[in-house]
């Protein structure tokens, strides 16, 4: 029970810190607005089909994860508070706390991105809301799980930005491709059973990433 309480306390600390400093949210929201605006201008003279819209949606979610998710560990390192956290919590508590915070952040941003697409793109009509929600939630959690462990690995290095993109890109290909595929199905009105194989891949990816990260994190966190 105390491990759950400690994990919750780490998430609450990060949310409260984010609320005070706006360290990540403001820049990510600005990025989302800019990216959706550029896509809107680029596609103004064409009638985008579900494949194109799904691809563009996941491109924005992908780059949001690439640009913002590393901050959970990089900000601790830059502020010199990593040692403080090491003194009060076990690596497991820190890992799951940071994973949960990244999950909450990317789900919030995915919700904003979806709302913007629904407002600005007339062709973005979700025919199967259930399929869409499961696709975005599983895909976003997959992004959060990969981003969190890579963020922990690169936080102690000097060339963080480059290394983060290089290490993360191959890991995000699977949820990106499968997320796009299941989102097309949601826009075309497929049933849950028709999208089941995509959900199985996304859920398996999530479980493998979380289990692997959990085993690796001890070595990454403690020098």
């Amino acid at each position: 029970m105390s491990a759950f309480g400690s994990t919750y306390a780490v998430v609450a600390k990060d949310i409260r810190s984010e609320w005070r400093t706006r360290y990540a949210v403001n820049s990510l929201l600005m990025f989302v607005v800019t990216a959706v605006s550029i896509i809107l201008f680029a596609l103004r003279s064409v009638d985008p089909n579900p494949e194109l819209l799904s691809g563009m949606l996941w491109v924005v979610i992908f780059f949001t994860a690439m640009s913002g998710m590393s901050r959970v560990f990089v900000s601790e390192e830059e502020r010199g508070t990593t040692l403080t956290l090491q003194l009060v919590a076990t690596p497991t508590v820190i890992y799951f706390g940071k994973l949960l915070f990244n999950s909450v952040l990317i789900l919030f941003l995915s919700f904003i991105i979806t709302a913007m697409y629904m407002i600005f793109f007339s062709g973005f009509t979700i025919q199967s809301p259930g399929v869409y929600v499961i696709s975005v939630v599983l895909g976003s959690l997959g992004f959060a799980s990969a981003s969190t462990i890579i963020a922990a690995i690169i936080a102690k290095t000097r060339s963080r930005g480059t290394l983060y993109a290089v290490l993360l890109f191959p890991l995000l290909i699977i949820p990106l491709m499968v997320g796009m595929s299941s989102t097309i199905k949601a826009l075309e009105g497929s049933t849950l059973s028709e999208a089941l194989s995509d959900f199985q891949v996304l859920a398996s990816y999530l479980m493998v990433m979380v289990a692997g990260s959990y085993l690796l994190f001890d070595y990454v966190w403690k020098e």
Binding site: S17, R79, T81, L83
Partner: peptide, 9 residues
């Protein structure tokens, strides 16, 4: 000296 507390709190 390597330990810092959270400056926003």
């Amino acid at each position: 000296p390597y330990l810092n507390l959270y400056e926003e709190f």
